[in-house]
Amino acid sequence: MKKLTEKLGFALLFLCMIISLFFLGSILYFIVSRGFSVISWEFLTQVPKKAMTAGGVAPAIVGTFYLTLGSILFALPLGLACAIYLCEYSPKSYVVNIIRMSINNLAGVPSVVFGLFGLAVFVKFFNFGVSMLSGALTLGIMILPNIISASQEALLAVPQSYREASLALGATHWQTIKKVVLPTAMPGILTGVILGIGRVAGETAPILFTAATFYTRGFPKSVFSEVMALPYHIYALMTEGTHPEKQTQIAYGCALILLALVLLISSVAIIIRQRQRKYYG
C-alpha cells in the first residue's frame, strides 16, 4: 500500500511535467513550424506592401529595436543609480525598507497600467504625442523596478569583506563602489538587464496607446514619429485589416521573429546566471 501510493504519486508528478512540457512545447512548435515558411530575406528587409498583405515587416523589426534600445538607455542609468544609492549610501532604515517594498510592488503592476501612465504623462502632459519617445520612456519606466531590484540583489550579494578590504586600503567610498563592488556585481546586474530587454521587446500593452501604429511608410524618421513594433503588429494583423487570411500568414512570421529574438535574449541571461552560480558555488 505504502509502495503503491508512492508509485502513483510519482507517476502523477511525472504526468504534470509531461503535460506542462507538452503545452509549452506545442506552442513553440506551432509558431516555428508555421512561421518558418513565411520568413525570407524579403520578409526581413522589405516594407509592407499591398495593404499589409505582402512585402516584409522590416519597419516593425527596426521599431522594436529602437524602442528596446531607448528604454534600456533610459532605465539602466536610473535604475543602477537608484540601486547603488539604496544599497551603498542610504543608512539601512525603515524608510529604505519601505522604498524596497514599493519597488517590488511596482514590479508587479500590470503593464497596461504603465501604458496609462505613459499616456497621461509622456503623450499628453509632456506633449510628446504618440511617438517612439513616449513608448521608449513608458517601457523604460515599466522595467525600472525590475532593474532596480535585480541590481540591488546583485549588490547585496557582494561580500561585505570586499568593501572592508578596499576601504581599509584607503580607498574612498566611491572608489570602492566603482572598482570593487560594481565589477563583482556586474554579472548579476547584467542578467537583470538582459531579462528586462527580453521583456521590453515582447511587451504590447504599454505601447498600445503611447507609440505603436499599424502602418508607417518606411522607417521611423525621428523620435517623435509613430513606430511599428513586432508585438503590436501581430495584434493588429489579427484584429484589423481586410485580408485576414494573408495577414495571418504575416503574423506567423512576426511571431516567429519575436519569439526567436526574445528566447535568444533570455537564454543569454540565463546562461550568464548559470555560470555565475557555478562560479560562486
Binding site: S20, L24, G202, T204, P231, L258, V262, S267, Q274
Partner: peptide, 28 residues
C-alpha cells in the same frame, strides 16, 4: 524525481519559456 542532469536541462528551459511574450500566447 529528476536527476541532476535532467534538472540542469529542464530548469533553464522553463525559465526561458517564462520570458515568451504574452502576445505569442494570445496568438496561439
Amino acid at each position: 524525481l529528476a536527476g541532476p542532469r535532467q534538472k540542469a536541462f529542464l530548469k533553464p528551459i522553463i525559465e526561458i519559456i517564462a520570458g515568451v511574450p504574452s502576445i505569442v500566447f494570445g496568438f496561439f
